[in-house]
């Protein structure tokens, strides 16, 4: 059982996953940011690998990725930063990114480096399930990594069940068919999450997109096992010299 599976065995409610961008705000702040998140209540951490063309990300996360690329971040650099990071970081960590940089790094080499770090799981939103099943899934499994698929309110019941069966660790429920950081109304989301719950999926469900404050986090947690915060946290890191303080006050505003 890896850290991710152990987490969900231990904790089934109000699981908080926070997204941060590797190499943002500074090239070498990645592990410091993770540590601040861990100390202030994040149950797991999703580290974004920046990409020039991030189709599923909104403007805030894309801007943080552009900054990180300017800072010199790459998958190579990220794995250098993750050497020995487990001396400090004990919460589960998943990497999120897009297929193109991973393919250039070498898909199998990437999985091997993930297992060595070790990180616990992967989210690659532009890896389709056909290619996952025919080619990449076996490699991911060989290295003992969890793989998390996304589902949305537009995903059919049948397809949701299929993506759940292919996922390990948890299932990522996109709160609406929209890019991250969207301001859309949160109400219809509750009905969707209740529908998901009735499907009795094998994985815990974390809700992402549009979770930005205590109210949206609490609401999401009423209907799912937890939630994922991305853009709102990245915004909290903008223009701050005090990463620890900014992270503490942000997470306090969600959890307390």
């Amino acid at each position: 059982m890896n850290r991710l599976e152990a987490l969900f065995t231990r904790k089934k409610e109000r699981v908080l996953n926070v997204y941060c961008t590797a190499g943002y705000p500074q090239l070498n702040s990645t592990v410091r940011v993770m540590k601040a998140l861990q100390e202030n209540g994040a149950d797991l951490i999703e580290v974004g690998m920046p990409y020039s063309d991030p189709l599923a990300d909104g403007p805030v996360i894309q801007a943080s990725g552009s900054k990180a690329l300017e800072n010199g971040m790459s998958i190579d650099v990220l794995f250098q930063q993750l050497k020995n990071f487990r001396k400090e970081i004990y919460v589960p960590v998943i990497l999120m990114g897009y297929m193109n940089p991973v393919l250039q790094f070498g898909f199998e080499k990437f999985c091997q480096y993930c297992a060595d770090a070790p990180v616990d799981g992967l989210i690659l939103p532009d890896l389709p399930e056909h290619e996952f099943e025919s080619e990449y899934g076996a490699i991911i499994r060989r290295y003992g990594l969890n793989f998390i698929f996304l589902v949305t309110p537009e995903t059919s019941e049948e397809r949701t069940k299929k993506l759940d069966s292919l996922s390990t660790g948890f299932l990522y429920a996109v709160s609406s068919s929209s890019i991250t950081g969207s301001d859309k109304d949160f109400l219809p989301v509750e009905a969707y999450l209740d529908k998901l719950r009735k499907l009795q999926l094998k994985n815990p469900v974390l809700v992402g997109f549009g979770i930005k404050d205590k109210h949206t986090f609490d609401t999401a947690c009423k209907h799912a096992n937890g939630a994922i915060i991305g853009s709102a946290y990245i915004k909290a890191l903008e223009n701050t010299a005090n990463l620890g303080g900014a992270t503490k006050s942000f997470l306090d505003s969600i959890l307390k």
Partner: peptide
């Protein structure tokens, strides 16, 4: 270009060694 993924399909893509377009 090298084989890569851009705008939803696998094709040849002009990119850096790190896979940035």
């Amino acid at each position: 270009g090298k084989p890569g993924i851009l705008h939803g399909s696998k094709s040849l893509v002009m990119q850096t060694a790190d896979g940035q377009v």
